[in-house]
Simulated scan of single mutants.
Amino acid sequence: MKGKPIKWPDECVDFLRAWCPFFLDKELAAILSADWDMNIDRRILNAFRLRKGIKTGRTGYFHTAENPGYVPPKGSHLSPATEFKKGMKPHNTAAVGTKVKDADGYWKQKIAEPDKWEYIHRMIWEEAHGKLDRQVPVVFLNQNKDDLRLENLMAITRGDLVTLNHTMKLSTDAEINKTMIITAKLKSAIFGATTHVSGKK
Rank of each mutant, 00 (worst) to 15 (best):
Val139Lys: 13
Thr59Asn: 11
Asp147Pro: 09
Thr157Ile: 03
Thr157Asp: 05
Pro90Met: 08
Leu153Lys: 03
Leu153Arg: 00
Lys99Ser: 07
Phe84Lys: 11
Gln135Gly: 02
Asn92Arg: 13
Met123Val: 06
Asn144Gly: 07
Gly159Thr: 11
Leu150His: 03
Glu151Ala: 15
Ala95Pro: 06
Ala103Arg: 15
Gly87Phe: 09
Asp146Asn: 15
Tyr61Ile: 01
Val96Ser: 06
Leu153Met: 02
Gly75Thr: 03
Ala94Ile: 00
Lys89Ser: 14
Asp160Glu: 15
Gly87Ile: 08
Leu132Cys: 07
Ser79Ile: 01
His121Ile: 01
Met88Tyr: 02
Met123Lys: 07
Leu150Tyr: 08
Asn144Cys: 14
Val139Trp: 13
Gly159Ser: 11
Glu127Ser: 14
Lys99Gln: 15
Thr82Trp: 05
Trp125Asp: 04
Phe140Leu: 09
Ala112Val: 02
Tyr119Trp: 12
Ala65Asp: 14
Glu66Lys: 08
Thr59Trp: 11
Gly69Ser: 08
Glu127Lys: 15
Tyr106Ala: 07
Glu66Ser: 08
Gln135Asp: 09
Tyr119Asn: 09
Ile156Asn: 04
Val136His: 06
Gly130Trp: 10
Leu132Val: 00
Val71Gly: 01
Met123Trp: 00
Pro137Glu: 09
Glu126Trp: 07
Pro90Trp: 06
Trp125Leu: 05
Val71Thr: 13
Pro137Thr: 02
Gly105Arg: 09
Asp104Gly: 08
Phe140Glu: 05
Lys145Glu: 01
Thr82Ile: 13
Ala81Trp: 10
Pro114Asn: 04
Glu66Asp: 12
Asp133Cys: 11
Thr157Cys: 02
Val96Asp: 05
Pro90Lys: 13
Val71Leu: 14
Ala112Thr: 00
Ala128Tyr: 12
Tyr106Cys: 10
Lys116Leu: 11
Glu66His: 06
Ser76Ile: 03
Thr98Phe: 08
Gly105Phe: 07
Lys89His: 13
Thr64Ser: 12
Trp117Gly: 05
Thr64Pro: 01
Val100Ile: 15
Met88Phe: 01
Thr93Trp: 13
Ala95Cys: 07
Gly97Asn: 08
Phe84Ile: 01
Thr93Arg: 15
Glu66Asn: 06
Glu83Tyr: 05
Asp160Pro: 00
Gln109Asp: 00
Glu126Cys: 03
Asp102Ile: 00
Ala112Asn: 10
Asp147His: 06
Asn67Lys: 14
Tyr70Asn: 09
Ile156Ala: 05
Phe84Cys: 03
Met123Phe: 00
Gly130Asn: 09
Phe84Gln: 06
Ala155Asn: 02
Pro73His: 04
Gly75Ala: 05
Lys131Met: 12
Glu151Gln: 14
Pro80Cys: 00
Gly87Thr: 07
Thr93Ser: 14
Trp117Ile: 04
Met154Thr: 02
Asn142Trp: 08
Pro137Ser: 06
Asn144Pro: 09
Lys74His: 13
Glu113Asn: 15
Leu132Ser: 07
Gly105Ile: 04
His77Met: 11
Glu151Ile: 11
